[in-house]
Amino acid sequence: MDIQNEPAMIEAKDVWKRYHGPFGGGWVLKGVDFKIPRGVSVGLVGKNGAGKSTLLRLIGGMDSPDKGEIIERCRVSWPIGLGGGFQGSMTGRQNVKFVARIHGGNADIDRIIDEVQDFAEIGPAFDQPIHTYSSGMRSRLAFGLSLAFNFDVYLSDEATAVGDVSFKQKAKKAFKERVGQSSLIMVSHATKILEDLCQSGIWLHEGKAIWFDDLKDAIDAYHDSVGHKPKTKKAK
């Protein structure tokens, strides 16, 4: 298989997106262009409100661009984040069953439930309504749930931010095991976990996306733009 000639896994072509608020809305993305090759994990960095989550929602198919297009040549997960995807009044188990069913996994629903329970390790809370969960428990469940399906690309929107050390270790291990099979597109403000899991970076700045083959360069560019001395440089 020739990596060079293989078409990019995810391709954004001049993507524009704006939101219509009650007081008019500005453009969030102004002509975003990038190509993500197969098997490369990408960290998305940028200021709050730079459009990181918007871009993930577009890639996840929850929303569509006002102009331009996003071409996906792979199976992409839903954006795993703090908020969406779970109905608060239902238990963790019911939510997992629902997601398994819509993905056609009715036959091996027990396997999926076991896997999620194994990964999430939230114990008896699995049978409690989601709105009683702490944010850490929610993201454990969300991460475990998405890992129960074999997606080519997983989208994570700050899902690891609220996790404790053991959860971060687990997430890291799960993705290390899947290197070569699946990759990750990740939004996070924690530089450490980005560096652990991603190779390349996209810096969203003023509505444009700037691609960096090396994630470190993306983080440095982002930190320079906000005038912040990154810790990694100090350590040198």
Partner: peptide, 30 residues
Amino acid sequence: KDVNPATAVRSPYKVAWHVWTALFMREFVS
């Protein structure tokens, strides 16, 4: 890579059917 039946490509009708069954059970429970 082994193909997981849960994420293998399904026809659009099948996807709609799976969504409907899942939603039906969820609506009924709630």
